[in-house]
Nucleic acid binder design. Structure first.
Lengths: 335, 335
DNA sequence: AAGTTAGAATTAAACGTTTAAGCAGTGCTT
DNA sequence: AAGCACTGCTTAAACGTTTAATTCTAACTT
C-alpha cells in the first residue's frame, strides 16, 4: 500500500505549518485570517498530491466518526434490506456512513455486534433488538450512546423508537377478512415476547372479539430458527382440519414460508382460504391470486430513524416514540 | 456521552505504565515477561472498569482498521442482500466489520463511495463495479488498496474477481428451452457494456446458433433506471406479436419486472410462453407455475470474495480470477 | 570485583488530525 | 514613544493506542 499523502506533506510542500493546511481544508480561511496566496497554494498542493483526508485520525481527534451502526435481524431479509437501503441514503445525506450487522434474532449475537460497533466508536446505533436484549439496551443508555430502536422496542424501557402501529395493522386485517365474509381466521405469528409481535397478536385477538368471533381465535406460534419445520407442521394441521377459512401471517418471512405450505396443499386461494401477509414485497403480487398484505412505510421509517438518531447525536435530550401507520394493500386474496 | 475508560485509567488504577496494560491486553505477557501479579491486577481492573478498547485509536496506530467496504448496486435487491449477509458472516469470522454502500449502477455514486470508504481507511473493498468505473478501479490498483470485484469485472484490467460462468449460464438455459421444444427464444437483458451482461448475451447468442436458431435471435435491452417503462414497452411488444414462445431474463430484477408484464397479459406459462429467470430467489417458486431460474452460488461467491480479499490484505501478490458454476433450477415453466 | 544476563518495568515516539494559545510584525492612535 | 489592534502565521498538545528503546535491579558468571 503506497504511503498515503498526509497534511504534513502538503504543509512541507507549501512551506507552512500543518495547522494552516487543516484550517484551509476545513474552510476556516476567513475566520483564521489566512493569506490568500497561501490558501491558493494549499489548494494547489492538495490537488497536485491528490490528498485524501484520513478519517480515522480525524475521528480520533474529534471524538466522533460520522458513522452509524445498523443492527437488524437479517440483512438478507427484504424487509431489512430495504430498510438498510433507506438508512444508507438518508445517513449519507448527513455525511454518515453505515456499518451493519445481522443478529439473527439472537441476543448473544446482538451483544457482540453492539460491542464491536461501539468499540469502533460509531456515533450512534439504529437497532431492531432481539428478545432478551434489555441489558444491552440499558448499557447503551448508561453509556449515553445515542440509539434508536426500530421495528420493535422494549416496553419496560423508554427509548427512542420508530415502529409500526402493529395493533391496528392486524386489527384492520381481521376487519377486512370479516367484511369479506370470512370468520374462521387464524393468525400465524412468531413465538416471541417482543412487543411488536405481542401487539400484532393482540390486534388480531381484539379484532376477533370486536367482531364477535372470540370462539374462532386461533394463534399459532412459529420458532424463528425452526420456521420451516414449525410452519410445515402447523399448516398441514390447519389445512387438514379444514377448520379455517382465512389466515393472517405476522411477518414477511412467515408469509413466504406459509405460502409454500399452502401451495403444496391443493387449497384454493381465495375460494377456500383467504390470506393476508405482512411487510409485503412486490413479489407478493406473483402469488396466484395476488396476496393482500399489510405494508409498512419503510421509506418513512428508515428516514425517520436516521433523523431521530442524528438529533440524538447532536445532543437532543428528548425521547421520541414514533408510531407509523400501516397500509392494508388488498388484492384478490381478500376483498 | 460518559467519558470512556481508556488504557490510561487502567494503568493509573493498577499503578503501572500504559505499555504494560497494552501488552497484557494483547496477550504478550509471556513475551514481554510481565510479573504475574501485575497481569492479574490488570485483568481485574479491566473487568472492574469495564474497559472497552478504542478501535479508532488502535486503527490509527496500526494503520489498519479491520474493516472492509462492500459496494454493490443496491443492497435492497435480494441478490446483493444475500451476498451482503454472507460477506458479513465470513468477514466476522476473520474479525472484520463491513461498511456498505449502494452505487445504483452509477459510476459517480461509486466514485463517491470508494472515496468515502478509502478515507475511512478500510483495509480492502469488495465491489460490483458499475459501467464506467474503470478509472476508479485503476486508482485502487495504483494506491495498492486491496480489492476484489464481484459479479462483474472489467475485461481490460486484470484484477481479483469472483464471478459467475455467465456465458455457460445463458447457454445452458437456451439448451434447456430447446430440449423442451421451444424455438423462438428471446433474451431480455440490461443495456450495459459490462462484461457479465455481454457474456450472458453472448451465451444466449451462441446457444441459439449452436442449436440452429440463428434466425430467432432476439435480444432486448432495458435501461437500469428505466426498467419499468422499458420492460413494459418491450414486453407488450413481444407479447402482442406472439412471435416468441420462450423468454430468458438476464437478472433478478429483470425477471421480476418481466413477470409483472407477463401476468398483466393473459399469456399462459408455460403452455404459450416458457420462462427462465436469473438469480432465483425462493419467491420465484410462487409464480404459477413455478419459474425456472439460473441460480448463482451466492454462499460460495460471498465467502470466496472475502477470503480472496483477506489474502490480498495479508499481502498476497497473486491475482485470482474465480469463475463459479451456475445451477439451472428447472421448474414447470421450462422442462 | 567486574561483567554479563534475565526479569520487570518505564519512557516516549508515533499514527494524522484538530485547535487553543502564542508570537511577530505592521500600522494606527493617543 | 508607548500602547493597541490587526493580520498572518507557528507551536504544541491532545485524541487512545502500540511498540521500539531504555532503564533499573538482582542474580549469576568468571
Amino acid at each position: 500500500m503506497a504511503k498515503r499523502v498526509s497534511i504534513k506533506d502538503i504543509a512541507n510542500k507549501v512551506g507552512v505549518s500543518t495547522a494552516l493546511v487543516s484550517y484551509v481544508l476545513n474552510g476556516l480561511e476567513k475566520e483564521k485570517r489566512i493569506g490568500p496566496e497561501v490558501v491558493k497554494k494549499i489548494h494547489e498542493a492538495v490537488k497536485e498530491l491528490n490528498y485524501q483526508p484520513n478519517q480515522i485520525a480525524r475521528s480520533l481527534r474529534k471524538g466522533s466518526t460520522s458513522t452509524i451502526g445498523l443492527i437488524v435481524a437479517d440483512i438478507s431479509n427484504p424487509f431489512f434490506g430495504q430498510l438498510a437501503r433507506v438508512v444508507e441514503n438518508e445517513a449519507a445525506q448527513f455525511g454518515y456512513a453505515v456499518v451493519f450487522g445481522s443478529s439473527d434474532e439472537n441476543a448473544a449475537n446482538s451483544a457482540i455486534l453492539i460491542k464491536t460497533l461501539v468499540n469502533r466508536q460509531v456515533d450512534g446505533l439504529i437497532l431492531a433488538p432481539p428478545e432478551g436484549s434489555a441489558e444491552q439496551i440499558k448499557y447503551l443508555m448508561n453509556q449515553g450512546i445515542p440509539f434508536v430502536l426500530v421495528d420493535r422496542y422494549l416496553p419496560d424501557i423508554s427509548t427512542n423508537r420508530v415502529v409500526l402501529d402493529n395493533y391496528n395493522a392486524t386489527y384492520s386485517a381481521v376487519k377486512c377478512f370479516v367484511a369479506n365474509g370470512y370468520r374462521r381466521i387464524t393468525l400465524v405469528a412468531y413465538k416471541s415476547t417482543l412487543v411488536h409481535m405481542r401487539e400484532r397478536i393482540r390486534g388480531y385477538q381484539e379484532g376477533m372479539k370486536d367482531n364477535g368471533l372470540s370462539d374462532f381465535i386461533v394463534v399459532k406460534e412459529v420458532r424463528y430458527n425452526q420456521i420451516k419445520e414449525d410452519m410445515e407442521a402447523i399448516m398441514t394441521g390447519l389445512l387438514n382440519e379444514r377448520g379455517m377459512d382465512a389466515v393472517l401471517f405476522a411477518t414477511n418471512a412467515l408469509s413466504i414460508s406459509g405460502l409454500y405450505a399452502i401451495r403444496k396443499s391443493e387449497v384454493k386461494v381465495p375460494e377456500e382460504l383467504a390470506v393476508i401477509g405482512f411487510d409485503g414485497h412486490e413479489v407478493f403480487d406473483f402469488f396466484q391470486p395476488p396476496l393482500s398484505y399489510i405494508q409498512q412505510p419503510l421509506e418513512e421509517m428508515g428516514k425517520e430513524s436516521v433523523r431521530v438518531l442524528i438529533d440524538q447525536i447532536r445532543g437532543s435530550q428528548k425521547t421520541v416514540h414514533i408510531e407509523m401507520r400501516h397500509q392494508l394493500i388488498t388484492r384478490k386474496s381478500c376483498g
